[in-house]
């Protein structure tokens, strides 16, 4: 049996911008390659200015690559047939202020050639899902940043896409809003959709992603499942001992005898509050990659 085509295939993608009168060249993306498999949630992680949005804009046909190629659902970008099966949420979405939330979703539905009754049904269902049913008739100029973000997600789903591309979907949202969007993304996975999202919020990646790519300085540093990217080895053991009413935290390096340390602490009249073996988090990996990039420069 042949494997299905990747939902996204990016091969040696490059983008160079020319700025100013002298056309000074800045390479924003330097030969990025990765694949996103159908049905997975893929995180595209990197610090600000790493090239995440530039890569996504190339995928969405908003800017043209200087080199390399990218495919969506097996078709080379830009392709109108592939676009029919893709939903996209831009970073900090801006929509037509004169329209209401419902009118905007209708407009998006028309661009996908959806019949009027289907547009109506989908718009109402999506407004309900993103928690905007009560503001459906309000003009978008009266929407808050968080509400626009939710509407952006709704318009990205109006065509019931196979692949959803989200550029910083959690930006501008409060913790409750972030949780709701995380739940929505989780719901998309349950419905068999492929989700590709960029973020610099590492907790979201750890909570949601099957695999992720780390991009730093316009180049991919690591791609794979989180458990493979993160080093399984113990970094240190965190021990908290309470003595005379004061809590004291100690970090024991991997080679130290934790049992002996605890016995000694108890003998000295202390009380063990917690013992936590600390392994590498995505944040550690991320910091390691960013620092390695700085060292390379």
């Amino acid at each position: 049996m042949t494997e299905p085509a990747p939902a996204i295939r990016v091969d040696d993608l490059k983008k160079t911008f020319a700025f100013g009168f002298l056309r000074r060249k800045v390479q924003a993306v330097r030969g990025v390659s990765f694949e996103v498999r159908p049905g997975e949630i893929f995180g595209f992680v990197g610090p600000n200015g790493a090239g995440k949005t530039t890569t996504i804009k190339m995928l969405m046909g908003l800017i043209f690559p200087s080199g390399g190629s990218c495919e969506l659902l097996g078709r080379r970008v830009p392709d109108v047939h592939a676009k029919r099966r893709v939903g996209f949420l831009p970073e900090t979405p801006y929509f037509y202020e004169h329209l209401s939330g419902r009118e905007f979703l209708h407009l998006c539905g028309r661009l996908f050639d959806l019949p009027a009754d289907e547009r109506r049904a989908r718009a109402d269902r999506l407004l309900e899902e993103v928690g905007l049913a009560g503001a459906a008739s309000r003009p978008l100029r009266k929407y808050s940043k968080g509400m626009l973000q939710r509407l952006g997600l709704a318009q990205a789903l109006i065509n019931d896409p196979e692949l959803v591309v989200l550029d910083e979907p959690m930006s501008g949202l409060d913790p409750i809003g972030r949780k709701e969007i995380r739940d929505l993304i989780g719901g998309l996975r349950a419905r068999g959709k492929t989700v590709f999202f960029s973020t610099h919020i590492l907790a979201d990646v750890e909570l949601l992603c099957d695999r992720c790519a780390i991009i730093v300085g316009g180049a991919i540093r690591d791609v794979g499942p989180l458990e493979k990217l993160l080093s399984p080895k113990l970094l240190h053991t965190e021990v908290v001992i309470e003595r005379d009413g004061h809590a004291e935290e100690r970090r024991l390096p991997p080679g130290d005898d934790v049992q002996a340390f605890l016995r000694e602490a108890l003998a000295a009249g202390g009380r063990v509050v917690s013992v936590t073996p600390v392994r590498e988090h995505l944040e550690d990996l991320f910091v390691r990659e960013v620092e390695a990039d700085k060292a390379r420069q």
């Binding site: 908003l62 109108v80 831009p90 801006y94 996908f112």
Partner: peptide, 14 residues
Amino acid sequence: ERKTLYAFIPKPIH
């Protein structure tokens, strides 16, 4: 300038 275009170009239009 207002980036409203970002919601249009990725839709199935030329």
